[in-house]
């Protein structure tokens, strides 16, 4: 009992060093796929909340590309400004074209069509979110980062500057790595 206490005491500085001073946004997520999908929907909803399009969108068209694992609950998203969410999937010939989309949720996809998609959104008012890009190298605006217990995201500031949509700068602070 006593030795355990001392061991804990010795471990204390390590714990203190392990805690980072600035924490990125971390959404606790469950282990089952449905809980993860709910968390994903919530985070995507928050991202849509803080995104501004050049003209207001009464109906927000969210397109899905690739094979999304946690997109099952995206239809539950409700936006505070009252905009309706319209989900659609990009398949077949239009799989690499983002016309008619205000936001693009990209699941698992090969790198060639991925690059085509991202290139197509450059300079366009399209918010891009990648589900499966933990290194965030594909040029999308938001990359979702799944950890066993938490969900966080990274904001690609280069992609923001190349896009026609604007992201609330307060969201920068919540991004992994921070700004």
């Amino acid at each position: 009992m006593r030795s355990l206490f001392f061991t804990l005491l010795l471990l204390l500085p390590t714990v203190a060093l392990a805690v980072p001073s600035v924490q990125p946004a971390m959404l606790p997520i469950g282990t089952d796929a449905d809980a993860r999908a709910a968390s994903t929907a919530r985070m995507v909803g928050a991202m849509l909340e803080y995104t501004r399009w050049p003209t207001p969108r009464p109906v927000l068209r969210l397109c899905l590309a690739g094979t999304a694992r946690y997109a099952g609950r995206l239809a539950d998203i409700s936006l505070s400004n009252g905009a309706q969410l319209q989900l659609s999937s990009l398949t077949g010939a239009g799989a690499t074209r983002s016309e008619g989309c205000d936001a693009l949720y990209i699941g698992q996809i090969d790198s060639a069509p991925m690059q085509g998609l991202v290139a197509g959104t450059r300079g366009q008012p399209v918010l891009t979110i990648a589900e499966d890009d933990p290194d965030c190298g594909s040029g999308v605006i938001f990359c979702l980062l799944y950890a066993p217990q938490t969900l966080s995201f990274q904001l690609n500031i280069d992609a923001v500057s190349r896009s026609a949509v604007r992201i609330d700068p307060r969201v920068l602070r919540l991004s992994k790595g921070g700004y």
Binding site: V22, A25, R42, A46, Y50, R170, V171, R173, L174
Partner: peptide, 19 residues
């Protein structure tokens, strides 16, 4: 309120606290 609003939307209380 302005600072913590996105953190609350993202459900991130640590970020809210640091804000």
């Amino acid at each position: 309120a302005y600072t913590v609003e996105p953190a609350l939307i993202f459900d991130d209380m640590e970020a809210a606290r640091s804000g």
